[in-house]
Amino acid sequence: MARVVDVHTHYVPRGWPRLGEDGTAPWLRLESEREATIMVGSSEFRRILANCWDAETRLEEMAEDEVDVQVVSPTPVFFSYDRTPADGVRIAKVFNDLALEICEPAGGRLVPFCQVPLQDPDLACAELERCLAAGHRGVEIGNHVGDRDLDDAGIVTFLQHCASTGVPVFVHPWDMPNSPRLNRWMAQWLTGMPAETHLSLLAMILGGAFDKVPDTLKICFAHGGGSFAFWLGRLENAWYERQDLVGVSEQPPSSYLGRFSVDSVVFDPSALRLLVDVLGVENVLLGSDYPYPLGERPVGQVVRKAQFLSEPARELLLGGNAARFLSLPEEVAR
Score class of each variant (00 low, 15 high):
Phe228Glu: 04
Val145Gln: 03
Glu104Thr: 10
Phe267Lys: 10
Gly154Glu: 04
Met204Thr: 01
Val12Arg: 06
Ser179Val: 07
Val67Lys: 09
Ala134Val: 07
Val262His: 07
Val5Arg: 10
Glu311Ile: 02
Phe230Leu: 15
Ala163Val: 04
Ser270Cys: 10
Met193His: 05
Leu326Phe: 12
Glu330Trp: 00
Asp263Trp: 15
Ala313Glu: 15
Trp231Ser: 09
Ser249Asn: 12
Ala333Cys: 14
Val167Glu: 01
Leu199Met: 12
Pro253His: 15
Ala229Asn: 11
Lys305His: 08
Pro177Trp: 10
Met176Ile: 10
Val169Lys: 03
Val265His: 04
Pro329Met: 04
Leu316Phe: 01
Pro252Met: 11
Glu101Cys: 01
Ser249Ile: 14
Pro168Phe: 09
Asp82Cys: 09
Leu326Ser: 05
Ser179His: 02
Thr157Lys: 13
Ala134Tyr: 06
Glu21Asn: 09
Asp22Lys: 05
Val332His: 13
Asn183Asp: 14
Gly20Thr: 06
Glu331Ile: 00
Asp268Ala: 05
Leu317Pro: 01
Pro180Asn: 03
Ser310Ile: 02
Val246Ile: 15
Arg234Asn: 10
Met193Leu: 11
Gly20Ser: 11
Asp147His: 14
Trp239Glu: 09
Asp22Trp: 08
Phe210Arg: 08
Cys114Trp: 01
Leu110Arg: 03
Pro177Ser: 12
Leu118His: 03
Ala209Trp: 06
Asp211Trp: 14
Glu127Cys: 09
Tyr240Met: 11
Val71Ala: 07
Leu275His: 05
Val265Gln: 08
Gly41Phe: 11
Ala2Gln: 12
Ala209Ser: 09
Ala306Glu: 05
Val111Leu: 13
Leu110Lys: 03
Gly166Ala: 06
Val213Cys: 02
Leu279Ser: 12
Val7Thr: 10
Ser264Asp: 05
Ala124Arg: 04
Ala2Val: 08
Leu28Arg: 07
Asp87His: 05
Thr24Arg: 15
Arg234Met: 06
Ser164Val: 00
Ser42Trp: 08
